[in-house]
Design a protein around this nucleic acid. Structure first.
Lengths: 136, 136
DNA sequence: CTTATATACAACCATTTGGTTGTAGGTTAG
DNA sequence: CTAACCTACAACCAAATGGTTGTATATAAG
């Protein structure tokens, strides 16, 4: 009944995660990230790859930066973008955690199913449903 | 110079990925996803957990659904939300691919460093486009 | 039958997003 | 020094987001 009452520390965390996924939710930004993982480049160098204004790419880089997926380092008159794989790994692990969560549920369902005589696929047992949900 | 010219098939893929990350970029939606992984619930049942209107939660579920992270199944007067871990796994693997990409680069740098006398970490190798494109 | 519940959906609103152009300042090249 | 280049940043705009309320409809419960 409680649920979704993140501690003040978690709240910050959640906002971080928001920024990471939001940054990844744009194909141009994902490409910029990929490019800067392949080779560290200046913003304008990156910008040449896309059919949009320099300022637009600059903004995309800023979004990636805010999500800590990249950092910028001044080098003379240009700003070099380098990727920060730590944040990426964090996101990947987060998704793994979700998957693990689901696997746990399946395991529990497996336990239920292994109980003898419990065949009904849709009992009105208050202990909830027995769906397999192996979809896709 | 080319770059970012996704094939028409990739373009669809990219849009799918957009939707997945965008769906994950909101703490409430991530929580809804978690909830429905723990136990399949109706929309209104889910909605009771949050301090926002039913309609808002309904919209959040719709976003998750559009990203194929969950599906809905009518059961009597209520709509049961169940999670679809396949999409989640896809996203996790995508992030893994990015990481791998970065690891490749590090490996290449390692190679450079192991070459005697080659200290410069910033070679201006013009033969660029060493794209691996291990995406997805 | 009547009422309560679960959903669907439209209309509206404020804020954010993703893009543009324009201006200005710092840095390098000739 | 001057010109070209790279970046920063403001102002503006259309569209998408995340929320609201209100209305309608189908199903379940009494």
């Amino acid at each position: 009944m409680v649920v979704y009452k993140p501690s003040s520390r978690d709240r910050l965390e959640e906002a971080d995660i928001d920024r990471i996924f939001q940054a990844l939710a744009d194909a141009t930004r994902r490409d910029i990230l990929r490019q800067s993982m392949l080779r560290e480049q200046s913003v304008s160098e990156l910008a040449r790859n896309y059919s949009m204004s320099f300022a637009a790419v600059q903004k995309h880089v800023a979004v990636l930066e805010r999500a800590l997926l990249v950092t910028k380092e001044r080098r003379g008159r240009e700003q070099i973008v380098h990727s920060n794989p730590a944040a990426l790994r964090r996101a990947a692990r987060l998704l793994d955690a979700y998957e693990a969560l689901w696997r746990d549920r399946i395991d529990r369902l497996g336990d239920l199913l292994s109980e003898p005589g419990t065949e009904a696929p849709r009992p009105d047992t208050p202990g909830n449903d027995t769906r397999k949900d192996t979809q896709q």
